[in-house]
Amino acid sequence: MSQQTVDAPPARPSRRSVAAGMAWAVPVIAVGAAAPRAAASPCNPQAYTLDWGGSNTSYTRNNAGTSGVATIDPDGAGPVASVSMSIASQFIGTMKAGNEFGNTNNNIRVSSSSVGGTGQVGLSFHQALTNAYNVVPGRSARQEVTFSFDAPVTGLTFMVTDIDSNAGDFNDRIEFSGAFTSQIANTNTLTGAGTQPNPFAPTNANAPVNDTSSTAGNVRITYPGTITSFTMTYWNAVSSYSGVDRSQGVFLSDFAFSVIRNNC
C-alpha cells in the first residue's frame, strides 16, 4: 500500500503493483442512509455517519500517531447531540508506528486519496517491524487499536481495505474483538473470520493490491448489537525478509451507526 496523507511528507513510491480491482458494490447501509432524518429530529433512533472527509466530522491526532479523537455532529447547531470516538493505539513487541526508517508516520492519519475503491478517503494504519532481519516475530509484534465511543452505539458498520501481502516484506493479519459479522469482498483474494485463531488474511503470500482503486483487500465489519468500544489487532505474518523495509498498512472507511438516547 502507499501511505499518502494530507499532512505527511511524501512517502517513497509504493512497492505494491496495481492489481485489477474486483467489482464489488458497497452495500447500502440503512443507518447511514437515515442520517438526514436524524439531523431533522433529536428523537430515537439517531443515525450518524463518521465521514473522514466530511464537514460533519472533526478529527485530531497526536504527533506520535498513537491517539486521536473524531467528533460527529450531524446537524451543526441543531438538536441532535454530537458523538465522539477516541482512538488509542498500543504497540507490542518489535512493532512501531510509521515506516521502518522513521521518516514517515501515517498511523491513524486520514489519507489524502480514496481507499479500497470506495471513492472516499479513509483512516490509515501504518506500522513497521524493528527486529533483526533474521527474526520473524509473528503476532508477538503487533498494534492493538481501541476505539471508544462516548455513547452506546448500535449497528456499527465500516470497511477495512487493503489487506494484502508482498513476499519478503509484509503479510497483513487483522483481528477484531467482540461479536461482529463480516462480508469479504472477494474470497479469491481474502480469507478468514477476523478472530485471533482465524484472522483476516490474503489468500496468497505475494499478492499486493492497489490501495486506492482495488476492492480485492476489502472486508466489511458490522457490530449488530450495542457497544461502547472494540479493538482491532494488526500484525505481520511474513515468513522471511528480503532486505526491504517491513512497513505495512491498511485503512478503515467511514463509520455508520445509530445511538439510542434517553431524551426522547
Rank of each mutant, 00 (worst) to 15 (best):
P42V: 08
N218F: 00
A201Q: 13
N106G: 14
Y133E: 14
F101V: 06
N62C: 05
G102D: 09
N131G: 02
D245M: 07
Q183Y: 02
N134T: 12
D211H: 06
A256P: 03
T104Y: 14
T228F: 07
A97V: 05
D7K: 07
M95K: 08
T191D: 15
T215P: 03
F149S: 00
G119K: 01
Y241V: 04
S253Y: 00
S84N: 08
P224L: 05
F255R: 00
G122V: 09
I184L: 13
W235V: 03
G54V: 07
R142K: 11
T146L: 12
P199S: 04
Y133M: 09
N262L: 13
V110E: 04
F170H: 10
V28K: 09
R15L: 15
T189A: 00
D164E: 02
A207G: 08
Q248T: 06
R142P: 00
I92A: 09
T231M: 09
T191G: 05
T157C: 01
T191M: 13
T49Q: 14
A193Q: 10
V115S: 02
T118I: 12
Q3M: 15
F230Y: 08
A128R: 00
R261C: 06
A88I: 09
S86W: 09
M159T: 05
P202V: 04
N204A: 09
T118H: 05
S67T: 10
M1L: 12
Q4K: 06
A207R: 07
I260R: 13
F180L: 01
I108K: 00
S14R: 05
R173N: 09
S177R: 03
I72C: 07
G243N: 03
A64I: 05
R61T: 10
I92E: 07
P13V: 12
A216E: 15
R139Y: 12
G178K: 07
S58P: 03
V259D: 04
G93H: 02
A88L: 14
T233M: 11
S148A: 15
F91L: 08
S124V: 10
A20S: 13
N218E: 02
V153Q: 11
N56T: 14
A8S: 13
Q143N: 11
G117M: 01
F230T: 00
G21H: 09
S17P: 10
V26N: 05
G54E: 08
S148I: 09
T5I: 13
F200I: 01
V145N: 08
A39W: 07
P27W: 02
R109P: 01
D150H: 04
S14K: 04
N56S: 14
V31M: 11
E100H: 05
Y48L: 06
T130L: 10
G54T: 08
P152V: 03
T66H: 03
T71F: 04
A88Y: 11
Q4V: 14
I108T: 06
P10Y: 06
Q183W: 02
A25D: 11
T130D: 03
F91I: 04
S240P: 03
P199N: 00
T215G: 04
D254V: 06
E100L: 10
A8Y: 06
W235Q: 01
D254F: 05
A216C: 08
Q248F: 15
A33P: 03
F170Y: 12
T191K: 13
N107Q: 08
F149N: 02
T215I: 12
V153F: 03
Y234L: 04
K96H: 12
S84M: 10
